[in-house]
């Protein structure tokens, strides 16, 4: 008894249909890429000198910290949660790191401490969410406040970083030619984070469980998957990424300031959503989030090219976020009806 459900014809149409049925979840990512390309083209047409290696390179270099945060946020949103604490945790770990360095601790110790502190904040959020049924946004909002307060507790004013290793991360420029393509160690760090996260999500049981939990937590439980551990770990990863972003941002600015990253959590969420990750969880890719960060960076660059108020960045991002959320909502409503 064989069902007639498989298309045996290998016509072009069948191929296309198969491609779509396999890759449908990549469509939002393609949409983000499309928007990025449209922006590039429009900016180039308008300014004439937008698409230069220098500007494109700076998309990565100026937003390395955001990219790292977006990677962590992608894990959390994929499970159906949200983490509003990332900006504040980034500021706190940055402050902590800068003050430890000032006190003379070796950088080889300071960076692990920053990562562990980030992980601990993430774990705290995860425990509140998972074991006490606190809504993710409340738990992470509390963590955001706690981290912001802690950052001010470290110091009320900015701390300059003079450690060579940290400054090396940003000051070293590997470039093809002066003014051409270039990359800094922080940029490499951010790209590495993306690659590792993409591999973890695509090729490990943990990664696939993240998707399963976000797709249908109840099912994942009934399938015997380790739901609790996976969700906790997603928040921990987001915390670690926030710690790493703290390193990158400190290197980028050469100093830590307790007010760093105010509103960054919103930028991060916006980048992830624009990159095609569904806020309801279960669908999305870190590569998409990377594209989302580039969209964000392009908007920011274009606005500074225009010489307009930087406040337009947030407004544009907010509008774009809205469009994507509404489209997502329509897609979800459609698939429910089916």
């Amino acid at each position: 008894m064989t069902t007639s459900l498989s298309p045996t014809r290998t016509s072009g149409l069948a191929f296309a249909r198969r491609f779509i049925s396999r890759r449908i979840s990549w469509v939002p990512v393609f949409a983000a890429v499309f928007i990025l390309v449209v922006m590039f083209v429009a900016a180039q047409a308008y300014f004439g000198n937008f698409l230069t290696p220098r500007v494109i390179s700076s998309l990565l270099l100026d937003n390395a910290y955001l990219l790292i945060l977006a990677v962590g946020m992608t894990f959390v949103i994929l499970t159906g949660g949200i983490d509003l604490s990332v900006g504040a945790v980034m500021a706190f770990t940055g402050m902590l790191g800068a003050s430890l360095l000032r006190d003379g601790l070796p950088v080889a110790l300071v960076i692990p401490i920053m990562l562990v502190v980030g992980a601990a904040m993430g774990l705290g959020v995860g425990v509140l969410v998972q074991y006490f049924g606190v809504q993710p946004f409340i738990a992470s909002l509390a963590a955001m406040f706690a981290a912001r307060g802690l950052a001010f507790m470290v110091s009320l004013s900015s701390i300059k970083v003079e450690d060579k290793a940290i400054l090396w991360l940003q000051s070293t420029r590997l470039q093809a030619a002066p003014g051409s393509w270039s990359i800094t160690p922080t940029g490499i760090l951010a790209l590495l984070t993306v690659v590792v996260a993409a591999l973890v999500l695509a090729y490990t049981r943990f990664g696939r469980t993240i998707y399963a939990v976000g797709g249908n937590e109840q099912s994942a439980k009934l399938m015997g998957l380790p739901v609790v551990r996976t969700k906790l770990l997603a928040y921990v990863i987001s915390g670690v990424c926030a710690g790493l972003a703290g390193v990158a941002f400190t290197a980028y600015t050469g100093a830590s300031y307790p007010l760093n990253g105010i509103g960054t959590e919103l930028d991060t969420i916006a980048a992830v959503v624009i990159g095609g990750t569904l806020l309801t969880g279960g669908s999305g890719y870190v590569l998409g989030s990377m594209v989302g960060v580039f969209v964000y960076g392009t908007i920011k660059s274009a606005i500074s090219f225009l010489g307009a108020e930087q406040s337009w960045t947030r407004i544009t991002i907010g509008a774009l976020l809205l469009v994507f959320v509404v489209v997502q909502r329509i897609i979800v409503a459609r698939s429910r009806r089916r």
């Binding site: 930028d267 406040s311 337009w312 947030r314 991002i317 907010g318 509008a319 976020l321 959320v325």
Partner: peptide, 14 residues
């Protein structure tokens, strides 16, 4: 409401 939280301050700045 996050959308306005994000865009609102930008509007105010404008």
């Amino acid at each position: 409401t996050l959308v306005l939280m994000l865009a609102g301050r930008g509007i105010a700045l404008l």
